[in-house]
């Protein structure tokens, strides 16, 4: 009897231990704490100056928004409807919190005390080149931090394209509306 009880207890205990080891295997989950490294990070930073394969970002237009050292006045890829949609989606997540959805700079974070950014609809920003807008997203401007860690280069350009669309939308006249849509708009207004 004693043998049976101690035997089953041993099995049970062993089972628990095995189960625990399966639950928590000797591998790191993303961002898991490490006992091995001094700074407790399992996700290791790259050694300074490392260029990961395929990440030699030589294209200054795409990655820095510059052509021959000056801000580019074009977006490095064609702007399609998909690009604009992507830009709208990213803008509403990452930018609208301060710049608000129409770009006047009265987002919720501004209402809670963050420094108010310029409206996109002022003359200076209407005339700025796309490369300049890209640079602000890429490296930040004044109180605005860089968003390079939240938006990849393609998304940054998509946001630039969408900001241009926002700027157009806020200064549009009836003449900008396609003819077949114009009547619909006028009847809706009444």
């Amino acid at each position: 009897m004693i043998c049976l009880v101690s035997g089953s207890l041993l099995l049970f205990g062993n089972g628990c231990e095995l189960r625990k080891r399966m639950y928590d295997q000797p591998k790191y989950e993303p961002l898991e704490q490490s006992d091995f490294f001094g700074d407790a990070r399992s996700a290791r930073a790259l050694v300074e100056g490392t260029v990961p394969r395929g990440h030699l970002n030589e294209d200054m237009h795409l990655y820095e928004g510059k052509i021959n050292g000056a801000f580019a006045d074009t977006v490095p890829f064609p702007i399609t409807k998909e690009v604009l949609k992507r830009g709208q989606n990213r803008y509403n997540i990452y930018c609208a919190v301060c710049h608000d959805r129409a770009g006047y700079g009265n987002g919720m974070i501004v209402q809670r005390g963050f420094k108010r950014p310029s409206s996109y609809h002022i003359d200076r920003l209407r005339k700025e080149k796309p490369g300049y807008l890209y640079d602000v997203i890429n490296r930040g401007f004044g109180s605005m931090p860089s968003y390079s860690h939240q938006l990849n280069p393609e998304d940054r350009w998509a946001v630039v394209a969408y900001i241009r669309a926002l700027q157009l939308s806020q200064s549009a006249t009836l003449e900008d509306v396609p003819k077949q849509e114009r009547e619909k708009l006028l009847t809706e207004k009444q």
């Binding site: 997540i93 919190v97 860690h149 939240q150």
Partner: peptide, 25 residues
């Protein structure tokens, strides 16, 4: 306040892990 999940959980759309935001965020 209107902050989207993805503002902080940046990799949720393209990665296995949703990402715990960095102090920087």
């Amino acid at each position: 306040m209107g902050i989207d999940c993805r503002y902080c959980h940046t990799t949720v759309e393209e990665s296995a892990s949703a990402n715990i935001p960095s102090t920087r965020i």
